[in-house]
Amino acid sequence: MLTYIIRRVLYAIPIILGVNILTALLFFYVNTPDDMARQIIGEKNITPEAIENWKRDHGYNLPLLLNTEEEGLSVVTQTIFFQRSAPLLWLDFGRSDRKNADINNEIRKRMWPSLAIALPIFLIGIFVNLTFAMLVAFFRGTYLDLWGVILCVVMMSVSTLFYIIGGQYVFGRVLKLFPISGYDVGVHAAKFVVLPVVIGIITAVGSGVRFYRTVFLEEIGKDYIRTARAKGLSETKVLFKHGLKNAMIPILTSVVVSIPFLFYGSLLMENFFAVPGLGSFTIEAIQAQDFAIVRSMVYLGSILYIVGLILTDISYTLVDPRIRLE
């Protein structure tokens, strides 16, 4: 088990390096620091000096990959790539391009509002999806199942944008149940959190229920279910004991990968509801074309994804007795 985890972590290193190089390529080579300076300073004030100044202030005044003016190790270290990308490897995100803010600090501060939205969506969402999926699976072949599936497909076919806009309009403006957007610290956050959470759950319920239902039905078709029925177990027990525990294997492992992302926030939701989380942090950076932040978030996302993959593998061993990791 331990060797397995170590191997997985070691395997993650080349991937993280790959992401690092890829993002560096995208951000520094294709869009050079000069371009960035021009974009940020603005078309009007461009002078070569202004660009140089900006680059010096923000640490972009070095060669990209190799610094031929230096000697020894410095050939590699005194470069934009090393100065700006290598620290990402030990999770030092540096400072933002525009406001010169400490990105690590921002992330630490903003991940909690993101979590406050994402965690309830995640937990309640799984519960709701499972419940409905078991319900339609239990009544498989009946009209309840048929219409349940149709409803799922219909709900899947509606854009998230409409759920958000419609939800805000109906619950916020017409019924005035919740504030349309905004955020507050501590307990006061609750009233701001409800609406995005409800909408977040509704958005995913269609595809979620349908997927879980498929998993259930696949399990129901297995031989061991027939054995359980032949024992004389009731249909509820067959489904909820034998079926559920087996169905939980693919379900659990499919959701585990997203656990690390709970901190990461959702661009769309946080933007619409003005939640000061990492999602809106990112979207603001995009709009301001602050590449230091975008790069950091890309990198953070990759690491969370890899952590998610490792967690997924570990969760397999916990729920499935057949799998023992070497």
Partner: peptide, 23 residues
Amino acid sequence: QYIYTTLASIPAVLLIVAFMLIF
């Protein structure tokens, strides 16, 4: 597998954003 795991690990939206801003 390495190539596609690496690509899959980059958050899709942000990759799209960066790419579109540049290209």
